[in-house]
Design a protein around this nucleic acid. Structure first.
Lengths: 359, 359
DNA sequence: ATGAAAGCGCTAACAC
DNA sequence: GTGTTAGCGCTTTCAT
């Protein structure tokens, strides 16, 4: 086992400065008034010995580590990492350290990680849940450990949360498409038994249609896990079927940007032009939107802001501040790029466009 | 200030089991042999009280927190988050916790963060450096704190590192293009006064040419920060100039995938077809490669493996294991997608293709 | 094999 | 104002 070099302790500083350790503590933590000259002596000793208080020891006394845990399904997904960036900035500003744990969408792992963090370190916990299972969160909430849930609607409003109005946001997307004159609007999503976010976006699609007096057409509301897996082949088959049935809508909304881009690819392969023949809008405003061809018009979630808001909320709770609103809902908006246009004049003609290229 | 509920301590367990605290400690840590029956009593008490040893207190004694710090320029960049994922898995397997710090490419911040981590918590440090400045790393290396540097070539081979052979990898890319018959191979990169990685890739481009007996042509080796900023406009202007000078090569290699995709966009806007008129190969194999049109052929870095290797190396050092090789170089390979083809037959004709579309 | 006790470095209550 | 001292919960001698 490797050994750390011994670092100067508060005792060493006290000896060097010729004062007591509590005086040193008072100076270092600015917690009591200490006379000018002794203060200076302490500071000089601190500098000379390069003294840094040992956080571990301090934590043992104060029962606070100034550390918060973040549990996230997958750090490598741009959406999450952007949100985390927002958290990071706030944490630093407020002088907290951040511990990250990935669960890779495994609920058991979620609970295990949570316990590791809670049992040992953290002052508070920030939680991205993979799925709609909150029993473990309730458990630690009841243990009186500060928790904030992000991007998921928890049934219990006692549990602090930060999210967007997924339903409203998707409604927004449908509205946007309608404003271009679209009346045949499809939707692609993966299945959603246990993810409220995904479910609510679908609900938003439906209510958006209703709001615009468009009947819901199940043929073009596609719920398929080929979308989740971002399987081009699968997406292509879906498009092909729609084409053959002559059911191709003039526009699509999608559960996420990656799905939308997969859809565009399939559409292009099938001989449709985007947006001239079919418009597409994504969801999330991830970086890939810029790289797609055409660039993807999408619904933006304020990712950094979400992270920042969640962290501020959590730290306010940790520090015992009064919080007025513990269930924050953040606004979304449409980012216009190049994947939406008015529907083509002659829809008949559209549906006869060739299925030219092989996939 | 919010207060944690008091958790059972080793004393509570000892009392409950009717043994001494050192017996409890021995049982919990399996560090000494304890008689069957007393062992059972302890275990029962542990379960009954739901006792978890307090890591902070333990750390105070043992001077080890089983925590390692990771310093990274930007967690939201896919390259980094993928590598981190590899680290994460190994850390978990070896029962360490991971603390992440972002520096946003700020060298001062790099040093500050490092100090925060070192002074207070960690058993070891994993370092992605933004730039070629290693003075701070040497400093903590000399303090005998385990450090591993990732993805950067440190001049001092004493400092453990994990990286790829950037020079060789870019040479590989040039070779690959040559195997298709290309002889006019351009390169796009941003400037590289202080990033060895970037510099070495350029060196690889040059040596790749030399190896294939192709003279270096400065007109098509483009070093411009429009590339770094991923400014489409700037990239487009570069392409335009090349076009007007009739100097368009038949292929390009790029410092990174994003740059390559920007290049493709500019090329397409300028009326060139990729890969029929111009081939492009990227670097990194990021997810965007799949989303670009055409999908981007690129040089793959083994990202997860890098993370895993670095973490294993670090923990071996932390735990005082013998390590045979403290400077690990990982292999790269070409991922073939759709952005490379043989050069067009008639280069003259190519250079006369119209500059049709406005940007 | 077990337990008593020292002490890791710090904060905070209390005495001066 | 300043110093003394009692722990925080744990590991680790050192007796027994």
């Amino acid at each position: 086992m490797w050994k750390k070099l011994k670092r100067p302790s508060i005792r060493d500083v006290a000896r060097e400065a010729g004062v007591s350790i509590s005086t040193v503590s008072s100076v270092v933590n600015k917690t009591k008034f200490v006379k000018e000259d002794r203060q200076k002596r302490v500071l000089k000793a601190v500098k000379k010995l390069n003294y840094k208080p040992n956080i571990i020891a301090r934590g043992l006394r104060t029962r606070s580590t100034r550390t918060v845990g973040v549990i996230v399904p997958d750090i490598a997904q741009p959406f999450f990492s952007q949100v985390i960036r927002g958290m990071e900035e706030v944490a630093r500003k407020r002088r907290y350290t951040l511990i990250l744990s990935c669960t890779f969408y495994d609920v058991a792992e979620e609970e295990r990680q949570m316990n590791v963090l809670v049992d040992q370190f953290i002052d508070g916990l920030l939680f991205f849940c993979g799925y709609d299972n909150y029993s473990h969160i309730k458990k630690i909430y009841n243990q009186n450990i500060p928790v904030v849930v992000i991007d998921r609607e928890v049934s219990d409003p006692k549990i602090p949360s930060v999210l967007i109005d997924n339903t409203g946001a998707m409604e927004q997307a449908v509205d946007y498409l309608c404003s271009y004159g679209h009346r045949e609007i499809g939707y692609v999503t993966f299945t959603f038994e246990n993810q409220a976010t995904v479910r609510n976006r679908y609900a938003g699609y439906c209510s958006g249609l209703k709001k615009n007096n468009i009947p819901h057409n199940p043929d073009i509301a596609i719920i398929d896990d080929a979308i989740r897996l971002n399987e081009l082949r699968g997406t292509y088959n879906i498009i092909k079927e729609l084409h053959e049935k002559r059911k191709m809508p003039t526009a699509f909304t999608a559960i996420a940007d990656a799905s939308a881009i997969g859809l565009i690819k399939a559409l292009k392969e099938a001989g449709y032009r985007v947006p001239q023949d079919v418009s597409v809008v994504g969801f999330n405003n991830e970086i890939v939107c810029e790289f797609s061809d055409p660039p993807l018009t999408t619904v933006k979630q304020p990712k950094k802001l979400m992270g920042a808001a969640a962290m501020n909320l959590l730290l306010d709770i940790v520090e015992g501040k009064k919080v007025k609103n513990k269930n924050i809902v953040l606004p979304t908006n449409i980012i216009e790029r190049g994947s939406v246009a008015a529907p083509p004049k002659n829809t008949k003609q559209l549906s006869q466009r060739g299925f030219g290229n092989e996939f």
